[in-house]
Design a protein around this nucleic acid. Structure first.
Length: 763
DNA sequence: CCAGTACTTAGGTTG
DNA sequence: TAAGTACTGG
């Protein structure tokens, strides 16, 4: 085989052992992806049909890259027939195909975390529960954990242990909330991320014919990043592999960093039990990093008790020691690192791609962002608020979702009154009340008030009718227009585009919003054109893809000369010549939340191990003596993790403090030297002026004259704040009388005449 | 209904 | 600090 000379001995064995159960423990930088890629290529060379191969990866990006590399070896058209992707994307497609079996429509929506929390929030409100004891995010976390352990709402409620836990934490209603949440999702035809795995399990365990079909289809199964799979994922794999047992899992227990979302290191132990004849291979030679970095990383991970012994080593040169830099403040940390990057770029690096700044929490990106910008260094922040989570994008996507699936309540609530069409809060609440009363979806109510009466006045009913008609007209075109044509139509006729264009003169943010929407539309056009087949691509097809996309998936290769900034979690699987691990402080990294248990601290240590092993040539650690947290200046100590590195691999740099430099020590607040944690906020809050404001404000509402004169559609009027405009709509009676007015500079506004104090210019 | 303001509170990592 | 919510005056 031509590629054999590209692999070392243990890699070759792992590649060629394609039958039976196999576990590959792959140390950091040991060429794991290469092994997986060649293993699949080798299988196909042995005559295995790519249709029979299932490869599960951790990210979409990994799947795409691997498909591409396999394509280069065996040909792209063949490689395309492999089923490769994340658990979520592969099984969401299988679920759509078999949706009828589990009582979902095949066009079900995928709720993201935001949607889920919003549903939970509503339920908590409806149940009249205190949202301090029932925090949406912790309720969601508990439901998520239940699903990852395949506990149905019923099973949850009947589990005495769990009931006791909930009682003790004073949240006895948890089971009811879970049940209501599940019902609500079902009614909306929606699944959350956990449901994709949960219902896959249901599908495979309750429908033997389906299970058997996929067991026959996927005769060869591979799972990457096995250490990060959870119980639900473990069971799916186990079921699918039960007949042929051609299963290969690849992972590194030292890089297990996702137990907080249910990843279960026990899966590795279970593997040994489930397949007693399994073969174990270890990849221990590191090709990525210099010797100093490899050894330093080894000295870190040695501190963990729980681990599979392995000996990661390298043939690479020693390289330079790991530098440790201390700065006074978080802002100075940003400037120091930015300067350093600038210098290294001058002396040894060719492009800014070679640099990465890794941090524990997304918030930390700010000081680096500012400092890099000042030096004109291009950078890109990965993660954080993703493109798809931006309000304007979610709004437009909500229209798409609602078009594809009318029962999607989160989408409906998002757009029924956006852009403003005078369907107010009260109306929406009454729709919800009716929906609950008849146990149907909100859409059922608004599209058929005759059957499901709701307490809504006729004017509003007309507005709702118009809205329903509009959505129906979009839906009617789902299979006539392609994804881009329909998306464009929706953006325009929904009024979203008009609204955005009207606002774009207000400021940069408004312009960016418009640009984002345009980018989304361009992305959809790409989606339609980019598929090399001539298949018709509908908006529904796009929606299937989009729910599971993340920022990393939409990077374009051309803009690739920038410093990368991301959390350490997001950096897993990546490598950079020069890595800066910043914020190496106690209570930040390790996070103060993990200090209670050894296992959590060990996970944090593995996270540090992951960070250090991203580096190829140089690795620099930095920390600040003080840092703003929640607007408070906090003192910080060097992280224990720094001390845990064997000191022979470390070099403590004396930071060049600007002692004697031109700058005054009393310069800016953020520059002030650290004084031992006694720093209080620098300025006292201003005295409360409220009481002063009340004085002299006791006069009666001055009656305005606007209510006396009849204002009609078509009148030109003047508003105190918005200036001149034209009345486009009148509604309400008496005190509630409202006018919708188009103002050239502010767009369309609805005002209550009682307050608006309109001056009539001409009739 | 709109917009400005006062108040509260944030634990963190992701498909 | 920053974002999100609740309140209030017009």
């Amino acid at each position: 085989m031509s590629y054999l000379n590209e692999l070392n001995e243990s890699q070759i064995v792992a590649v060629e052992n394609i039958y039976g159960a196999t576990m590959v423990i792959a140390g950091a930088g040991s060429g794991k992806t290469r092994v997986l890629t060649y293993r699949i290529a080798y299988m196909m060379e042995q005559g295995i049909d790519p249709f029979n191969i299932l490869a599960l990866t951790f990210t979409n990006k990994a799947a795409r890259e691997m498909t591409e590399r396999i394509g280069q070896i065996v040909g792209a058209s063949e490689a395309k027939n492999i089923t490769m992707g994340t658990f979520h994307s592969v099984f969401s497609k299988i679920l759509r195909f078999n949706a009828d079996r589990i009582g979902f429509p095949n066009n079900f929506t995928i709720y993201d975390t935001q949607d889920s929390k919003s549903v939970i929030k509503d339920i908590i409100k409806e149940f009249n529960l205190d949202d301090k004891t029932y925090k949406p995010s912790s309720v969601f976390g508990r439901i998520s954990a239940a699903k990852n352990n395949l506990l149905s709402p019923e099973a949850y409620a009947m589990n005495p242990e769990i009931m006791l836990e909930d009682k003790q934490s004073r949240r006895p209603e948890m089971a009811r909330i879970y049940q209501a949440y599940a019902n609500r999702c079902q009614k909306s035809g929606a699944m959350d991320f956990d449901d994709l795995l949960y219902f896959t399990n249901i599908l495979l365990s309750e429908f033997p014919d389906v299970l058997s079909y996929y067991q026959q289809k996927f005769k060869y199964i591979m799972v990457d990043e096995y250490q990060d799979t959870n119980y639900a994922q473990y069971l799916i794999v186990k079921k699918l592999a039960a007949v042929y047992e051609n299963i290969c899992v690849v992972g590194d227990d030292a890089q297990s960093i996702y137990s907080f979302r249910g990843a279960n290191i026990e899966n590795i132990l279970n593997f040994r039990k489930d397949y007693p004849d399994f073969k174990l291979y270890k990849l221990e030679q590191n090709y990525r990093s210099s010797k100093n970095i490899v050894e330093a990383a080894n000295s870190i991970i040695k501190k963990n008790k729980d681990q599979i012994t392995k000996n990661v080593w390298t043939d690479n040169t020693d390289g330079s020691k790991i530098k440790v830099i201390r700065t006074l403040t978080d802002n100075e940390e940003g400037r120091t690192i930015a300067n350093r990057i600038f210098d290294v770029k001058q002396s040894e690096a060719k492009t800014f791609n070679e640099f990465a700044i890794l941090y524990r929490t997304n918030k930390q990106s700010r000081s680096f962002e500012e400092a890099l910008r000042k030096l004109n260094i291009p950078y890109k922040i990965y993660g954080g608020l993703s493109f798809y989570q931006r309000k304007e994008i979610k709004d437009l996507l909500a229209y798409f979702r609602l078009t594809a699936n009318h029962n999607d309540e989160e989408a409906l609530k998002r757009v029924i009154n956006y852009p403003k069409r005078a369907i107010g809060k009260t109306s929406i609440e009454n729709i919800i009340i009716a929906a609950n009363k008849y146990n149907v979806s909100m859409w059922d109510v608004i599209s058929d008030f005759a059957t499901y009466p709701a307490d809504i006045n006729n004017g509003t009913k007309q507005k709702i009718y118009d809205f329903v008609t509009m959505i129906k007209s979009f839906a009617a075109q789902l299979n006539k227009l392609n994804a881009f044509e329909l998306a464009d139509t929706i953006a325009k006729s929904s009024g979203i585009m008009r609204e955005m264009v009207a606002e774009k003169d207000k400021g940069i943010e408004e312009v960016e919003r418009l640009q984002n929407v345009e980018e989304l539309l361009a992305g959809i056009q790409e989606f339609v054109r980019g598929s090399d087949s001539d298949d018709f691509k509908s908006l529904s097809d796009f929606m299937i893809e989009v729910a599971l996309l993340t920022d990393a998936d939409q990077e374009k290769p051309e803009d690739r000369n920038h410093v990368s900034m991301m959390t350490i979690h997001a950096s897993k699987g990546l490598e950079f010549p020069h890595v800066f691990i910043v914020g190496m402080e106690e209570n930040l990294f390790p996070s103060q939340m993990v200090l209670n248990t050894r296992s959590e601290l060990e996970e944090e240590r593995r996270l540090f191990y992951v960070a250090v092993t991203r580096a190829m040539k140089t690795c620099t650690l930095s920390y600040a003596g003080s840092r703003f947290i929640h607007g408070q200046l906090n003192s910080c100590e060097q992280s224990r993790f720094v001390d845990e590195i064997d000191s022979q691999y470390l070099y403590f740099e004396t930071p060049n403090r600007n002692v004697g430099g031109g700058r005054s020590l009393m310069g800016r607040d953020s520059e002030r030297p650290f004084t031992g944690g006694l720093n209080k906020p620098m300025s006292a809050p201003p005295p409360n002026l409220k009481s002063l404001k009340d004085i002299g404000n006791s006069s009666e509402d001055s009656k305005n004259n606007g209510t006396n004169v009849e204002i009609k559609v078509g009148y030109n009027v003047e508003h105190d704040r918005f200036g001149k405009g034209k009345v486009t709509k009148m509604e309400g009676t008496g005190a509630d009388k409202k006018a919708t007015i188009f103002f050239p500079h502010h767009g369309s506004k609805t005002v209550i005449l009682r307050f608006a104090n309109l001056k009539i210019l001409e009739e």
